[in-house]
Design a protein around this nucleic acid. Sequence first.
DNA 1: TTTAGGG
DNA 2: CCCTAAA
Length: 476
Amino acid sequence: MRMDRKPHLTKKPADVKCQRVDDSIVSGLEDEATDVEHLLVEPQSEHISVDGVLCFGKESIEKHLKMEDFSCAFDYGWKIGCGGLDSIYGEGGDDMKLEVLDGLLDEVDEVDDIHAAHDLSSACEDFLLDIEFPETFSELDHISHEVSNLHNSSSESHSPGFSVSNSVGGISESSFVTAQESNYKNSVLGKMVNCDLHHTFGSKCSCPDPVMETGRHSKEHDQDFVESDDEKPLVSFILSNKKVKSSVEVPKGDTHLRQKILRKPTRRYIEEFSRNSATGKKCLKVEPQKEFPQVPESQPWRGRPTKTVPKLEFESDCELSASEPDDERKRTKRSKMVCDRRKNQRMWTLAEVIKLVDGIAQYGVGRWTDIKKLLFASSSHRTPVDLRDKWRNLLRSSSALEQNMREDEANAKHNVRMLPKTVVCRIRELATIHPYPKVCNSNLSSVDNDLSSKQLTTGGAPVSSHRRNLRRKKCN
DNA sequence: TTTAGGG
DNA sequence: CCCTAAA
């Protein structure tokens, strides 16, 4: 959620900037130089923006009101969702409530996403966060603390807000706070652009430049590097020898980075790029608000699966007749699933595995959509592809278990940990009945041991091709 | 759109 | 989990 972002805001290591400036001196040969200029100018605007937040200046009141309207709209949407919730309460049990609540909470995520998408200023947050404010830093820190505190309260109040769906009359607290923050950011953005223009149009800007002293040094160097061609060979030499300690932690060097940018960036690249920029590892040269869609940051998409309480998952999934009111939810969900799939990586619970095995036993391997529709209708985060992948993994691990069992039981346990024997047996059983095209190969070798081993001993490559043909036939 | 397969 | 090709 949104509060994930605040750590970046609150603790901004000072050395990052220093390093960055240093880099820019060296590697800022071509296009870094302009970036440095931006960086050197922005802090002053930030200073002003802080005042704007504190005083709630006149020009920001309008925006504030607009944002209120905006959040009202969202509130309305939530109320609709809550209506659905109520109707479900009538029929379903407690677990059902949990399930729907879970979905609604997910939807809060989506609302957040939408909010972020609409919030122009938040799109440049990365950009802003890359800026160091030597003088205004403590001030800003204070402000950000306040904002964070507000956020804390707001995010905690999410679920209560939904549970009292009928009583929601006005602007919900969370949306209000978001509006405040957006307002704050808007003012930041406005001032930033303003001062940027000032800077671009010369030194007419009357704004104080807090980093003028520190900036002069690097600016001079930048100009040197940009304007004099004599320096280029030296720099390119340095670059080619990779002696540059670049803040842009691209292992392949600057040229590769540029190549990447020139190429059409893939979605994964975009995601990783934004993710890295969020963690401060990379410093963006491209304005994030233009190039990249705002992705909620600091949600590790790998390694730490956001495992919801298994019990909840289990109980809710047991309801086969999923609530139909979440039709709309599915639609909105789809878009979410498409864009931040990896962040929604969830551990497969035992219940899910059992259900999957049941479904396969019922419908057979390959009818993933049916299984999904009938057995996983309530868990919208499992796509048919996920089911297939899971089944593939199950087969793989179960076969590995079977093979390793004889030689090393511990290793086998490690492979298929947390899977009860009954489940493993069922998987193996199903594997024989409905052999999965690709993995059945290894599985068949354990089940139909004599046949495959004979074939393997008789021939080399032809045999494998033959078996592949068999697999193909099975598919068709 | 669904499924298979590779990464 | 992601991506792509094929049906």
